[in-house]
């Protein structure tokens, strides 16, 4: 009888010991909560210990660079041209504790992120002309939006690593007018070539006729 009690104690002890051990993976970071109160943040992977379930619980967050693809939006440039901007965001949870306290989970974080990035992007693009957005300044604009978004998401424990404009397109009506312009431009070129050809040919003929007479 005594032996059985002894065995049971050992088994219970082992179970208890196992329940205190937990792994933190390379891709994870963990906040330990004691009756809901955060007491510890673990960002390094490896073997860790905590009190078993009802006493202490672990909230696990991704440690990797996370992606969020923003659906395309119509944004006005400074010269009042509307552009369809498709951008994406790369972000990382840098402060799991803040993250847990403010947004709890990635889906909620993404909606916050969306609000912030969208407003920053809209604000920034509104100060540039369309030509700038398309050409030289795209890098500068993206960098600025990234920096500003990053400042705004700091309180959520999120670092915005990159806001990148994947596509800038024109709405369909404008596309049509671009095509029309392109066509006209090419037509002009074609006409130029043809009349140049004619001119050159005439010249050669005239010179030939002159040479012949001489």
């Amino acid at each position: 009888m005594k032996k059985n009690i002894f065995l049971a104690t050992i088994i219970l002890g082992l179970l208890f010991a196992f329940s205190t051990v937990f792994l933190v993976d390379e891709t994870e970071q963990v906040v330990i909560l004691q009756f809901g109160k955060p007491i510890r943040t673990i960002t390094e992977p490896g073997l860790n210990f905590k009190l078993p379930a009802p006493f202490q619980t672990a909230s696990v967050f991704d440690n990797r660079l996370l992606e969020y693809d923003v659906p395309p939006e119509e944004i006005l440039s400074q010269d009042k041209k509307s552009l369809i901007v498709d951008n994406y965001v790369r972000f990382r949870i840098v402060n799991p504790l803040l993250f847990l306290q403010t947004v709890q989970s990635v889906p909620i974080a993404v909606t916050r992120l969306d609000d912030i990035v969208y407003s920053k992007l809209r604000q920034e693009l509104g100060t540039h002309e369309m030509a700038e957005i398309i050409t030289e300044n795209r890098d500068v604009i993206m960098e600025k939006v990234t920096r500003e978004s990053n400042e705004a998401t700091g309180p959520y424990g999120i670092e915005v690593v990159d806001v990148r404009i994947k596509r800038v397109d024109l709405p369909q009506e404008n596309e049509k007018s671009i095509y029309a312009r392109m066509e006209a431009e090419r037509m002009r070129q074609a006409n130029k070539f043809r009349s140049e050809g004619e001119e050159e040919a005439q010249k050669i003929r005239a010179t030939t006729d002159r040479d012949k007479v001489v």
């Binding site: 066509e183 090419r186 037509m187 070129q189 050809g197 004619e198 050159e200 050669i204």
Partner: peptide, 23 residues
């Protein structure tokens, strides 16, 4: 339109060639 530019270039060359042929 783009193809027409290419053929216009060809036309130009053709006309010049013809004139040169004449010469």
């Amino acid at each position: 339109a783009f193809k027409d530019v290419a053929s216009a270039k060809e036309d130009k060359n053709r006309m010049i060639n013809q004139a040169e042929g004449y010469r």
